Simulated scan of single mutants.
Amino acid sequence: MGHLLILFFATFSAAFMATVPPGLLNMNAAKTSVEKGKLNGIIFSLGVSTVIMIQAYVAVLISKMLHNNPHVIDILLQIALVVFAFFAVFFFIAARKNKKKKVKIIKVSKKNSFFKGTLLAALNLLTVPYYSGLNVMWNASGWIKFELWDIIIFVLAAGLGTFSVLYMYTIYFNKLENKTNRFSQNSNYILSGLMLVLFVITIFRLLNN
């Protein structure tokens, strides 16, 4: 039971931090709330979170399949290494640029806000490799064992972590809007540092193997 709590908070935190920087999903959730009402923004956020959970589940299946073949564990760790290195550089560059950028806003009606959320989330192709990399690290740390409850907790934590950020954008967007530039820079630096830590840990795992 103890490892399930660790798994939940670790995955929730990773999902939360990955969703914090202003981008297509959270800014559309906020704008939907402003233009169509907070309820509509929450429905949009639920659509996004639903797809995130599906993508997290796919990431678990990929990791589980590879884990069941011991001879590819090193390859899996190398893939995780590349993923974390990419995200570390990506978030660092995003923080260094520190420019206000106009995020494309999609028109959303109350009737189809949920489906708009699922569509936009599905377009984010980096989600699966991100959660696959996390899955490798959590498994190496003994936090996930690819059993039913482990998978359920991982998927739920990914969805709830994402939804919590989108909810904050939906409810508090007016307060965040004027601080978006500094907010984006700081969160991107934190994410870059997190990815760097995971990168270093993965290197040690590879050396130990």
Rank of each mutant, 00 (worst) to 15 (best):
residue 163 F to H: 00
residue 67 H to P: 06
residue 144 I to Q: 06
residue 72 V to Q: 11
residue 111 K to H: 12
residue 123 L to Y: 08
residue 137 M to C: 02
residue 98 N to W: 11
residue 129 P to W: 03
residue 81 L to Q: 02
residue 106 I to N: 01
residue 71 H to I: 15
residue 86 F to Q: 00
residue 100 K to M: 03
residue 49 S to M: 09
residue 43 I to K: 03
residue 75 I to P: 00
residue 70 P to G: 03
residue 152 I to F: 07
residue 125 L to G: 01
residue 138 W to T: 12
residue 40 N to W: 02
residue 70 P to R: 06
residue 73 I to D: 03
residue 82 V to N: 14
residue 102 K to R: 00
residue 77 L to S: 13
residue 111 K to Q: 13
residue 117 G to I: 10
residue 90 F to P: 11
residue 112 N to E: 13
residue 116 K to M: 06
residue 101 K to E: 14
residue 98 N to D: 10
residue 125 L to H: 08
residue 39 L to Y: 02
residue 58 V to T: 14
residue 164 S to V: 11
residue 94 A to D: 06
residue 45 S to N: 03
residue 41 G to K: 01
residue 48 V to R: 09
residue 68 N to D: 06
residue 137 M to R: 08
residue 86 F to R: 06
residue 91 F to R: 15
residue 53 M to P: 12
residue 81 L to D: 04
residue 151 I to H: 10
residue 116 K to P: 03
residue 46 L to G: 08
residue 98 N to A: 15
residue 90 F to M: 14
residue 61 L to N: 08
residue 58 V to G: 15
residue 121 A to R: 07
residue 135 N to Q: 06
residue 111 K to R: 14
residue 43 I to R: 06
residue 76 L to W: 10
residue 124 N to Y: 10
residue 122 A to L: 11
residue 55 Q to G: 10
residue 153 I to P: 04
residue 87 F to E: 06
residue 109 S to D: 11
residue 117 G to L: 14
residue 158 A to C: 03
residue 34 V to R: 12
residue 142 G to L: 13
residue 128 V to Y: 02
residue 50 T to W: 05
residue 55 Q to V: 07
residue 149 W to D: 01
residue 75 I to M: 13
residue 57 Y to Q: 10
residue 71 H to G: 04
residue 88 A to F: 02
residue 156 L to R: 02
residue 50 T to C: 05
residue 39 L to T: 10
residue 157 A to Q: 10
residue 125 L to M: 14
residue 89 V to G: 01
residue 78 Q to K: 12
residue 137 M to T: 14
residue 114 F to D: 07
residue 80 A to K: 09
residue 104 K to C: 07
residue 125 L to N: 11
residue 34 V to D: 14
residue 130 Y to C: 13
residue 118 T to K: 09
residue 105 I to M: 03
residue 79 I to F: 15
residue 53 M to F: 01
residue 75 I to R: 15
residue 112 N to I: 10
residue 34 V to H: 02
residue 52 I to Q: 05
residue 159 G to N: 15
residue 78 Q to I: 12
residue 106 I to T: 08
residue 55 Q to D: 07
residue 145 K to T: 12
residue 150 D to V: 11
residue 154 F to W: 00
residue 156 L to Y: 02
residue 153 I to A: 12
residue 74 D to K: 12
residue 67 H to L: 05
residue 91 F to C: 01
residue 38 K to A: 03
